[in-house]
Design a protein around this nucleic acid. Structure first.
Length: 909
RNA sequence: GCCCGGAUGGCGGAAUUGGUAGACGCGCUGGACUCAAAAUCCAGUGUCCCUUAAAGACGUGCGGGUUCGAUUCCCGCUCUGGGCACCA
């Protein structure tokens, strides 16, 4: 009986599916464990070998946890709304759902071949009305809530309305509220709702005809499609993520995520402690207060000018009539410039004098107010005090416009550049003179607050999320307009189904505006749709209770499954999905719908698998190709060649000629009769002809080999190149494993007792496997497996006592083979239901004692000896080391002290 | 520019966190079995010196330091991957 992976894998995949082996059900008698993969957006290209890396890792972990007695929830679904399907629809006229269905079917068939232990009964797509009903529901809840800073959580908007009616709130008095019109009331509430509509500067992408979130834009281009993005003021639906900035930052500490990812989130949230300082200003005889934000109030004596952002609403009132023309010209220039510069990535210094002056609140000095695009409207107050001596941006500006530079830190040289460091002793700074910068900051803050000149303020870079997209393929907003006032639809109307439209071609207006009868009881419905992250923000909750028609998730289900214990996915979601999801979860937590404050307890970022591309070298101007070693003799062009035509870097010449018509009469210059190709590690992509399809690997080697090899390649978190060449090693291992059980047709396993050596091999493996799987170190686990199997093969182990646990240990990695052998061992149930602790208990590693050995009281190394060893044995062992191990650096051991409490000390000469 | 990581044989990568560097796999070399090939198995494989072996010397990006002992800790560089980028 040979190892016939094709038959075995098909057989058990069918059996698992038919018998619902991986079905998860709530079971209060067992501890739960929730293992989740970031669900894929099914693109048209299908899966390449890099995609399943994380899925395989999480599947191994899920299977391992099952063996350890946990009730494991391990679901999979699809992130199905989004731009690519719609872009395709625009090109082909085909409904995005058709493409989406097709892509999902392909993904599913590819996934199924790898032998994952997903509970497919819980699967859904974000574009299913049954699912997006709950995305819309969450939006309604957000619309109907405000963030109460006193309670530090979201509360129903009705509570705010009650307050407004009775006492007013912040700058809205009860009188104002009570006489306000319906429209005015709506506008007032928009200032506090969690989901609100407001005018804001947005990333407008003309190429896609929609606005984009900050994380959907990179280097001034859209992440999807790479179209230029410009800033534009528009009224959009937004989510008040910024209200959660402090909580999102604070609860990061307790999460078991990588430091680099947490750091990325911290930077994205961008907390900075500073001061809001009020400057009196004068312009054409008018006086006005302007508040600036600064983290360096201590430098206020070095302020020599102020700067407003061009988009600041203060600009009109702070422009003098004399400067009006110049300012307007500058504003026009900025508008044009930003688009160009976003692409060019260079920032030239520009600005214009506003004609207004400000008065330094501490010194009384008059300083000019300028307008420049190096100040951002969206951060702080959109106005700054400039301290050119100690801020490089202010310095560059001062230099360009010849504004004074006044250093206020002793001994610093600002003739060439500013001195930005937060260190040194203050000077020319009145009451701050002589202080160190750090104490000066605090002293200045105290002074400002004590004299009513401003107040301490914490600012965040994190902005509210823009939630509207002028696109078709997304969740419709359950909102209609009554006399221009947004009115939410009642929950009973959900889901509000995405309407059919005639054409997907962009016309400048939102596609839904073209839908027939797009109104609710005669009131027009909102025409934008929700962004991609809407559907992916709470999907992990839905898996807990995917068929519930009455709630996103029942209190019972969420009470049992709580949150995700292990989340595996790519690092590219660090500042998008993972922020939005945490926000969304915290919001639902505030309202009592979920019972954990954080959605993902532990997060593993799998690395990327890069492709290994091959090249041929064509002599310029000919159809002649030279082998790698000879290419330097000629002027050549490097051409990507399909890796299917290359074996061990040797080119298949006939295959190459047949590959493309232009190569049909190619000539070759060979080395030792072979054409050697060049190679490089690059991103796996069609255009580089280096894509490896997991289906091909499954055909040729089997899913178990694929799983093992992807893990054996290196640490899961690390990016590494794929090279099919090495796959034979793990494939050989599996065949070897099989041969422990079968010698051709003969079944080898019997009930003979295991020898001590056989047991020892198994013990070591058990210990290693437990340790390494918990640490997510699967490559070393597999190494340990190879060693153990090698040892057992050499020992000709036939004992069921050892071989049966070995199958259990293998099952997370190579589930198909393990299942087959498990059944051949006489079991009827799945190996999934075997109990790992049972085997661990039966095979505990023999106890030994570790003695720490120290020189002069400091532990230097350890000695392992059997438990029964006497102090004399320990001393002998240490002295033996003196000779063989050179541990004591040539110095002679005078005395070895063995303390009863197992501590060994060495006294050196 | 700022903030995180990395750097170990021909290649992917190990090393119990300060204790025999290079586990495991690939590749390569030689051998066994074959008419032959595939498959399988065995042996060797960091570099240098040497006909070979023994023995030795050198070796974890570079330069210093701490230590009996450093891939591991500290200081200063180089290269490289990623994130942020006028955030006051």
């Amino acid at each position: 009986m040979d190892y016939d992976f094709r038959t075995i894998e098909r057989k058990w995949q069918e059996w698992w599916a038919q018998n619902r082996i991986y079905k998860a059900e709530e079971d209060a008698s067992r501890p739960k464990f929730y293992v989740l993969d970031m669900f894929p957006y099914p693109s048209g290209a299908g899966l390449h070998v890099g995609h399943p890396l994380g899925y395989i890792a999480s599947d191994i972990y899920a299977r391992y946890k099952r063996l350890k007695g946990f009730n494991v929830l391990h679901p999979m679904g699809y992130d199905a709304f989004g731009l690519p399907a719609e872009q395709y629809a625009i090109q082909t006229g085909q409904h995005p759902e058709v493409t989406t269905d097709r892509n999902i079917a392909r993904y599913r068939s590819q996934l199924d071949r790898i032998g994952f232990s997903y509970d497919w009964d819980r699967s859904f797509r974000t574009c299913d009305p049954d699912y997006y009903k709950w995305t819309q529901w969450a939006f309604l809840k957000m619309f109907d809530s405000w963030y109460d800073p006193a309670a530090d959580k979201a509360r129903p908007i009705s509570e705010l309305v009650a307050r407004l009616e009775k006492d007013g709130y912040e700058d809205v008095s009860a009188e104002q509220w009570n006489v306000a019109s319906e429209k005015e009331k709506s506008d007032i509430l928009m200032r506090w709702r969690i989901a609100y509509q407001g005018e804001t500067s947005v990333n407008w992408c003309e190429g896609l005809g929609t606005v984009l979130a900050n994380d959907e834009v990179k280097d001034g281009l859209s992440v999807r499609g790479g179209f230029p993005v410009e800033q534009k003021k528009m009224t959009q639906w937004q989510l008040r993520v910024s209200a959660y900035a402090e909580r999102l930052l604070r609860s990061l500490d307790a999460l078991d995520w990588s430091d680099s990812l947490k750091e990325m989130q911290r930077n994205w949230i961008g907390r900075s402690e500073g001061t809001e300082l009020v400057f009196r200003t004068r312009c054409d005889g008018r006086e006005q207060d302007v508040t600036v934000f600064t983290t360096r109030v201590d430098t206020v004596f070095g302020v020599t000018f102020m700067v407003l952002a061009p988009e600041s609403e203060l600009v009109p009132s702070l422009t003098s009539s004399a400067q009006k023309e110049a300012v307007e010209a500058y504003l026009q220039e900025v508008k044009k410039k930003t688009e160009r510069e976003r692409l060019a990535q260079t920032h030239s210094v520009s600005g214009v004098f506003s004609g207004a002056v400000g008065i330094n609140p501490l010194t009384g000095a008059e300083i000019p107010i300028w307008i420049s695009d190096y100040v951002l409207a969206g951060y702080g107050t959109g106005a700054i005090m400039a301290v050119p001596a100690h801020d490089s941006r202010d310095y560059a500006f001062a230099r360009k416009f010849q504004l004074p530079i006044v250093p206020i830190i002793e001994g610093c040289d600002v003739s060439e550049q500013s001195f930005d460091a937060k260190e040194g002793r203050m000077c020319h700074s009145g009451f701050l003179d002589g202080m160190e910068v750090k104490e000066a900051i605090e002293a200045a803050k105290d002074y400002v607050e004590a004299h009513g000149l401003g107040r301490r303020k914490v600012n965040y870079r994190l902005r509210d999320a823009i939630f509207s997209r002028q696109r078709y393929w997304g969740e419709p907003f359950p909102v209609c307009y009554k006399n221009g006032i947004p009115v939410p639809l009642p929950e009973s109307e959900l889901p509000l189904l995405l309407p059919e439209i005639d054409s997907y071609k962009p016309t400048g207006e939102a596609p839904l505006a073209r839908a027939k009868d797009w109104n609710y009881k005669g009131m027009p419905l909102e025409t934008s749709t929700m962004p991609g992250f809407a559907g992916s923000s709470a999907y992990y909750l839905r898996y807990m209770d995917p068929h519930n028609d009455a709630a996103l998730v029942s209190p019972e289900a969420v009470g049992y499954w709580r949150n995700v214990d292990l989340y595996v996915g790519g690092t590219e979601h660090a500042t998008g999905h993972l922020i939005y999801s945490r926000f969304w979860n915290k919001f639902l937590y505030d309202l009592g719908y979920v019972c954990e404050d954080e959605p993902f307890r532990k997060l593993i970022n799998q690395g990327m698998i890069q492709g290994r591309s091959n090249f041929v070298y064509r002599i310029v101007g000919t159809n002649r190709f030279v082998s790698l070693g000879l290419k330097d003799k000629y002027e050549t062009t490097e051409i990507h060649v399909d890796i299917g035509l290359v074996h061990a870097d040797r080119l298949d010449l006939e295959g190459f000629r047949a590959w493309r018509p232009e190569f049909a009469d190619a000539e070759f210059e060979l080395e030792n009769g072979e054409y050697i190709c060049g190679w490089a590690v690059e991103k796996m992509s069609k255009s580089m002809y280096n894509v490896v399809n997991p289906d091909d690997i499954c055909d040729q080697y089997g899913a178990d080999t694929l799983r093992l090899y992807e893990m054996f390649l290196g640490p899961v978190e690390q990016s590494k190149p794929w090279d099919t060449k090495g796959i034979d090693g793990v494939n050989r291992f599996l065949k070897k494993f099989w041969r422990l059980f079968y010698d051709r047709e003969e079944w080898l396993v019997s009930d003979v007792p295991a020898t001590p050596a056989e047991r020892k091999a198994l013990h070591r493996l058990i210990g290693k496997e437990q340790e390494d799987i918990e640490a997510f170190s699967f490559n070393t686990t597999i190494s340990a497996f190879m060693i153990a199997v090698g040892e057992l093969a050499e020992l000709k182990c036939r004992s069921r006592e050892v071989l049966e646990p070995l199958v259990v240990l293998l099952s997370p990695f190579a589930p198909h083979m393990a299942e087959e052998l498990w059944h051949r061992l006489g079991h009827e149930d799945s190996v999934t239901r075997a109990s790992f602790p049972e085997y661990v208990a039966a095979y505990t590693v023999e106890d030994s004692v570790t003695y720490p050995v120290s020189f002069n009281g400091k532990t230097r190394f350890t000695v392992d000896l059997p438990k029964a060893a006497s102090p004399a044995d320990v001393e002998a062992s240490v002295r033996a080391m003196e000779q063989t191990q050179k541990y004591v650096g040539g110095q002679q051991i005078v005395k070895v002290i063995v303390v009863p409490g197992r501590i060994v000390n060495i006294v050196l000469k």
